[in-house]
Write a protein that binds this DNA or RNA. Structure first.
Lengths: 356, 356
DNA sequence: TCCCTCGACTGAATCCTTTCAGCGCCCTCC
DNA sequence: GGAGGGCGCTGAAAGGATTCAGTCGAGGGA
């Protein structure tokens, strides 16, 4: 990065123009503050004449309501999304779906991304502190009881985990079915040495004690184990970090081992992409090592990648999450659980093994 | 998505527990509100004894300051990022860099994503309304004068565009140099029929009148034109939407044309990925049509993709953007311009043409 | 001993919006 | 013609933090 070029300070300290307030608008329009407030919020009890007057004043003064002040008594018109990994395209799909669903509403979406070493609760707390009107948490690694405490104050939709609650809504994919489809597919192709590579489950430590079994990845792993054992095969599970680079390293080591797998079932597509890169670098292809991912992110469809993957329709999940929050804000108090049916898309990355 | 399973309302309307306020903490610790405030903000004039007392009370009451209330008089400890396209991995890199830079600070980052049809100003306004302490805008398609008005009130860093301002800081890549590298590379490989496929520039309409020339993509296009004309070749520029799918369609049509190009210079990697998919689907490869992208997103390095691309180090841009904002918040009033030097990474996607 | 200074702490004002109780006024209905 | 009700609007309180001017007490210097 080239050295900075500071522009000379022109001496005159620019006086910050005070942005206009609802008070200014009221004075300008010759009405009370309360009246202006009603116009803004489209509330009941506003004559046509006053509406046009106030709107004109708002226009003239370029008035914009301060969200902070609104939040103190009313609503912030903001929905917060906790996103565990910004670069993950599955999460992007969720955001896309939600953006679309929110487009015609007065609600603005904000995203609190998780830092590399940050925990979910930091981001969720940060959203709650900002008094968002609703929160979407994606497979958060926190204690369900803690989540319920948050949900007591702020409508919350949790995407991914399979625990249920009366307090918050959940949206899940049927991870059992998805993983079954993957395993059936690989087994039918004739694979026997199948490795499962996935992310670390949340550690079973307080305050999040031993509930990891509800996490999507953990369920997929369980299905993998069952199916392997049912065939009298030895399961082999490897855990890595979220980011695909460790998956890449691990795969490279696997390929160098005396008896490398003929197939790898990846916990998600981000990992699968990392795995594919190691296989390609080694000069191998799908008939040496097949790979199946999970999420069906856009790049999986790309003909150069052509990754077999489980589609769980993240866009719909995001859209539904937004809808559920809006419903809650409109008054619903009962909890809702949605589950969608995943579907395996078979592509080039999975094939019959060259030698079983 | 499977039908909803409403949990039965258990009748007892749960009384929302009132979260504790600074008042409660003050009472609990036997001090004044102002004292608690000072402890929280690490302000001057706090004895060791009082600090420990107050901190204990905060702990006991699980007190968390309300950002909305803080924002009304002080700071919101929030930095806002306007992101024009959530799925774009270059923008993800910027966010990653910024997240890292902010990790050790009390500042939390929030992202305002742009909807499909939304304009930059909506997202930027929305951040300003939320009284974030600073804003990062990425190649926003708004009038520079408008941006300066925002910057009068809130420190602002603009990434991408090449216009300068005394009011806000800018971070750019040297797009001229980057585009020169691309064109030199393609020409040296022997390409002559080179098409440039890029995104639509902002329309030269009020309130953003005819300043599109400062946009990174427009500069890259200008360089392309110059180099083609210098060789006596006819430039051919095609504009598409942000998203790679239209690039895919357009490329397919190009390949079917009587005299298809031997190389395509893509305005960014997202487009390049879309172009590559059309080429691969047509059963062609880099010796039929070479492709060069811009941004060097992570997937470009993937051996299955191996896209030649210009690296402008988005992670550093994000980190620097965060740093510049923190500097402003610490008191700097002069504007700073940073520019980094892009570097072309040659990969498999660009090769000598099979027949020139 | 008295005055002054300085550090630690407090009380009250302030930020901007929503909400709620209440007040005229006009219309309708009996 | 009076009661009642609905509509349109207002004034003031409330919400939770920061900030500023000031108070108090201890310690130092003359």
């Amino acid at each position: 990065m080239t050295s900075a070029q500071p522009t000379p300070d022109n001496g005159s300290p620019v006086p910050k123009p005070r942005p206009s307030t609802i008070e200014d608008v009221a004075r300008e329009a010759g009405v009370s503050r309360a009246a202006v407030s009603k116009v803004i919020r489209n509330a009941y009890g506003v004559s046509e004449r006053m509406r046009t007057q106030v709107e004109a004043a708002i226009e003239r003064l370029e008035y914009r309501p301060r969200v902070a002040a609104r939040a103190m008594r009313g609503a912030s018109f903001t929905l917060g999304f906790e996103i565990p990994q910004v670069g993950n395209d599955f999460l992007t799909m969720i955001v896309d779906g939600a953006t679309e669903a929110l487009a015609a509403t007065p609600y603005q979406m904000i995203i609190a991304p998780l830092g590399r070493e940050q925990k979910s609760d930091v981001a969720i707390n940060s959203l709650a502190d900002r008094q968002v009107d609703g929160i979407v948490a994606i497979a958060p690694r926190v204690d369900p009881a803690w989540l319920e405490r948050i949900a007591e104050r702020t409508p919350l939709v949790m995407i991914g985990r399979h625990d249920r609650s009366d307090r918050y809504d959940t949206i899940t994919g049927d991870d059992r079915s998805g993983a079954e489809q993957v395993m059936s597919h690989l087994i039918e192709l004739g694979h026997r040495r199948i490795v499962h590579l996935t992310i670390h489950p949340s550690r079973p430590e307080p305050p999040w004690a031993g509930q990891a079994g509800d996490e999507p990845h953990v369920i997929r792993t369980a299905v993998y184990r069952e199916r392997m054992l049912a065939l009298g095969l030895e399961p082999s599970v490897i855990h890595t970090l979220f980011d695909g680079s460790e998956a890449h390293e691990v795969t490279r080591a696997l390929l160098d081992s005396p008896e490398p797998p003929t197939a790898i079932f990846a916990g998600n597509d981000t990992l699968a992409i990392g795995i594919l890169s190691a296989i390609a670098e080694a000069g191998l292809d799908e008939r040496d090592v097949s790979v199946v991912g999970y999420d069906d992110v856009p790049i999986a469809r790309h003909p150069l990648v052509s990754l077999t993957s489980v589609d769980q329709d993240g866009v719909t999940m995001g859209r539904e999450a937004a809808r559920l929050l809006l419903e809650r804000l409109a008054g619903r108090t009962t909890a809702v659980q949605l589950e969608n049916a995943p579907r395996l898309h078979e592509r080039r990355s999975s094939a019959r093994p060259r030698r079983p």
